[in-house]
């Protein structure tokens, strides 16, 4: 599997897949996509990188332990649910606001952060599993 071409292409392929996964995540509220799909794409990206170049470069690239990313994602999701309590509305009520980034109006919402949390959980958990199995493969 670790052919020269694969190893050369893998980093670029991975970066492209991760960019695509973020794109899928962010457009998910209006077009097909969302946190689950984005997370799965990103996890596949890291899995491919791991198969091509070994596990330790992936771990270095991730910087955090994948399970920590997963845990952080769960925290983000839970907090975006709890946030609505601060505004005296029931748990998980979506809150929306518009902010202007460089003159472009952008919708920000707790729902978006919730989806980002989903993305991170799926990304972290599945990457962690894939890497753990690959480690045995090479180790």
């Amino acid at each position: 599997m670790r052919t020269l071409i694969f190893r050369t292409v893998a980093p670029y392929l991975t970066s492209l897949m991760i960019l695509f996964s973020i794109f899928v995540l962010l457009r998910g509220h209006n077009e097909p996509g969302g946190g689950f799909i984005g997370g799965l794409i990103a996890a596949s990206a890291f899995a491919i990188y791991g198969i091509a170049c070994g596990v330790s470069p992936v771990r270095r690239a991730l910087y955090f332990h994948p399970m920590a990313i997963s845990g952080f994602g769960l925290l983000v999701s839970a907090i975006s649910g709890w946030l609505s309590l601060a505004f005296n509305v029931p748990f998980m009520t979506g809150l929306w606001t518009k902010v202007s980034v460089l003159g472009v109006p952008v919708d920000l919402s707790t729902v978006l952060f919730f989806d980002i949390g989903v993305y991170l959980v799926v990304l972290g958990s599945i990457t962690s599993v894939a890497l753990a199995l690959e480690e045995r493969e090479h180790g």
């Binding site: 969302g34 769960l74 949390g117």
Partner: peptide, 26 residues
Amino acid sequence: HGRNIVNVILVDFRGTDTLGEIAVVM
């Protein structure tokens, strides 16, 4: 405020379910 109904159900209408599900995944 979402046009993808499936995604809106997942992250908004039934968000608490999804929270439980991602906890299971983790």
